[in-house]
Nucleic acid binder design. Structure first.
Lengths: 189, 189
DNA sequence: CAAAATATGGAGGTCATCTCCATTTGTCAA
DNA sequence: TTGACAAATGGAGATGACCTCCATATTTTG
């Protein structure tokens, strides 16, 4: 699944160009004011090429999203290897908020596109979800976190954070959500 | 703002017809497979009429959403009047999950449409947010809930719940999120 | 009841999306 | 290197959804 087909050199180059430009435009938040065809020009390829590589806006978003997820998963692994479980989890969640905050436009664009059609991102987040599940499971094993709540709930909360991009006081509220989740997890009730 | 203009009788009728059909189609989840023009026919009016009443899909969604919000706010008020603050809050949040669960398709459709363009729903949710803020504030005054976390965080969590509609184990996870939020709120740390 | 005001509906213009294929570019064997 | 085959390109044009416009119909008002 990583190396589907040995892409030809120029195809590879174009694909990169498209992804690079996509990240740029996503981040600037200008993606929706842009005709998809024009985006092709902007990236320096023809429309045909754009559509061959990414049949829809969503497909393009998914590809970009993959990169993001990979980065985050790396972070998760590194934290898990160097910190006690509970701290790793906390650090990861806090870090997520930082990350999203640092890439507002991108997060917003991805959230919007993903909402459009179900599961488009579900596939892409699988890895992220696995990382979160691992973090929680380890913390549970350590006895630092209750065991009667599924890690999926944490994913849901994260989903809420990134989906609620347009709230005026986003940063503070996002931090509060993490606080609630972490404190809620701690209490075995 | 409630009675902008005394609408003519037939206009009123058409508007109702559109809203009724919209609720129906939203709930069935078929809204996105439908050309907006065709939706007009389905509701028994011409395209012009549809567009005059609701210039965009989002406008239509917002109108439907208003009804939902009103229902929920009523519930909030009734709970607040009859239960101790903490219980009212808990009951309301649990009830939200029930409500969303009972109107899956509608919630999904609304979430998708709202994600599309910022603040479209922000305006509509104002009342809902106020209700939640009141519930939380009362509970804080009762000393049942910590005071260092904004009610906005609860809204964000709710947002996550309704936005994450396509998760296979939605119901259980949604309940878990509420559990986390409630337990997190309880702990003054 | 006539005139004024308001609302209707659907034909047709506009414009983004996507397809298609003649041409170009890259690859590989000899 | 070169020829031949495969892979990829790009942009012109078909397609179809969205929205506007206005001649006609309906309601209200005096």
């Amino acid at each position: 699944m990583t190396a589907d087909k040995p892409l030809r050199a120029d195809a590879q180059r174009n694909r990169e160009a498209l992804l690079a430009k996509a990240r740029e435009v996503f981040d600037a938040g200008d993606f929706f004011d842009l005709r998809f065809d024009d985006f092709a020009r902007l990236a320096g390829v023809g429309t045909g090429t754009l559509y061959r590589h990414f049949p829809t806006r969503e497909a393009l978003a998914e590809a970009v999203y993959h990169g993001e997820v990979a980065t985050l998963c790396d972070r998760a692994r590194r934290l898990q290897a160097t910190l006690p479980a509970a701290e790793a989890l906390a650090a990861f969640l806090r870090g997520m908020v930082d990350h999203i905050h640092a890439h507002q436009g991108l997060a917003r664009t991805l959230a919007t596109l993903m909402a459009d059609r179900s599961g488009a991102l579900a596939e892409g987040s699988r890895a992220l979800e696995q990382a979160v599940t691992d973090l929680v499971a380890t913390a549970v094993r350590d006895g630092a976190v209750r065991d009667d709540v599924d890690a999926g709930a944490v994913m849901m909360a994260l989903h809420g954070i990134s989906a609620a991009h347009d709230r005026p006081d986003w940063r503070a509220e996002a931090d509060d959500v993490i606080t609630l989740v972490l404190d809620g997890l701690r209490r075995p009730l």
